[in-house]
């Protein structure tokens, strides 16, 4: 038996559904962004959820202490590409 959607398709659809659902009641949403791999996936899902609009919330980099330099470089690039703050 062949299933049409793979497990990654289903996880993706669920995450996108959740992000869009938040927009119904949220007044001022924000996405916490750590530049780790989980954040990278979450940001990618947000871009998919709201395309062709940019994600309707800013990214908040919890910048309380030192981070590795390489993380800042990727963060700035991703923010520019997504059209987010």
């Amino acid at each position: 038996m062949i299933d049409t959607l793979t497990h990654l398709d289903r996880l993706e659809a669920e995450s996108i559904h959740i992000m869009r659902e938040v927009m119904a009641d949220a007044v001022k949403p924000v996405m916490l962004y750590s530049v780790g791999k989980d954040s990278a996936v979450m940001l990618h899902l947000a871009r998919k959820a709201f395309y062709p609009s940019p994600p309707p919330f800013p990214l908040l980099h919890v910048d309380t202490t030192w981070k590795f330099r390489a993380m800042y470089e990727l963060r700035d690039r991703m923010a520019a590409e997504s059209g987010m703050e």
Binding site: H17, R20, M23, A24, A49, F50, P52, S53, P54
Partner: peptide
Amino acid sequence: VQWVNRPNLDFRGFAGQ
């Protein structure tokens, strides 16, 4: 329909699962 996607006047998309 979860969310109406209107990035500009030329596009009106209906988002949902």
